[in-house]
Simulated scan of single mutants.
Amino acid sequence: MRIDIITLLPKLLESPFADSILKRAIEKGLVEVHIHDLRKYGKGKHKKLDDYQFGGGAGLVMMCEPLFESIEDLKAEREYDEIIYMTPDGEVFNQPMANTLSLKGNIMILCGHYKGIDQRVRDELITKEISIGDFVMSGGELGAAVVSDAIIRLIPGVLNDESSALTDSFQDGLLAPPVYTRPADFRGLKVPEILTSGNFPAIDDWRHEQAMERTRLRRPDLLED
């Protein structure tokens, strides 16, 4: 997989891909992540990327020309399965969407800023619009990092135990059950006996029951879905 991210703030995206699972995935050659500085497409002496919106109103809008040029330059090098725009009014990101995107080959992510991008870019070039929740952030960079992390960890070979991803919250429409590790007795706080019984069918049943109960209490909307 290759992920290209277009951003006004490339340094903001350096850290998420420089540590832990994402770093190892890149080093193993399982994924390429390329950060592209939109500023080089800026116009005029000051590399302008934004302007006031037609019709008046507060806030600046990212201009058509730099965005078209940056996206078209990348498209000239390869075909993209998705060109994603991170925006609060996009489809809310979830695990099924991450699963689907993890099967793609080439993905481009555009990070918005200010009041957003000129609608013509969205109409002509963007294939998918994603939000990470019902709130507004200063820009799309952290959202792009969140989406990339969720996708990359699903690529075969990225996790040491690939079955781990299959038991994460939301994979089966439920929240994950509680988990425990050593010691079995810590200051009188004991691990449920079923987990140390060695009866794995019974353990599976217990975990499913716990997942159902946790979902019922914390996210009943998932059960409704």
Results as ranks from 00 to 15, higher is better:
Y180P: 10
D172N: 14
V191T: 11
D134Y: 01
Q171M: 12
D51H: 08
K104I: 06
M97Q: 11
F54N: 10
R218I: 15
I107G: 03
T127A: 13
K75W: 01
K11P: 09
L103A: 09
V179Q: 12
D123T: 11
E124M: 12
R153N: 07
E27L: 12
D81G: 06
D73G: 00
L101V: 10
G173E: 03
G56F: 00
L9S: 05
L74I: 07
V136Y: 00
I155H: 01
A145L: 09
D118E: 14
E213W: 02
G105F: 00
D19N: 15
L154K: 12
G140F: 00
D51K: 10
G55E: 01
D4P: 02
I132G: 00
L49M: 09
I117H: 05
A150D: 06
S15L: 12
E79W: 03
D168K: 06
A58C: 11
L22A: 02
T87I: 06
F186C: 05
D221E: 14
D123R: 14
E82K: 14
L154N: 12
I117Y: 04
R39D: 04
D204V: 05
I26H: 01
L125W: 03
D4A: 04
F17D: 03
I109N: 03
D81Y: 03
S164C: 04
R218T: 08
K23H: 05
P16F: 02
L222G: 00
P178F: 06
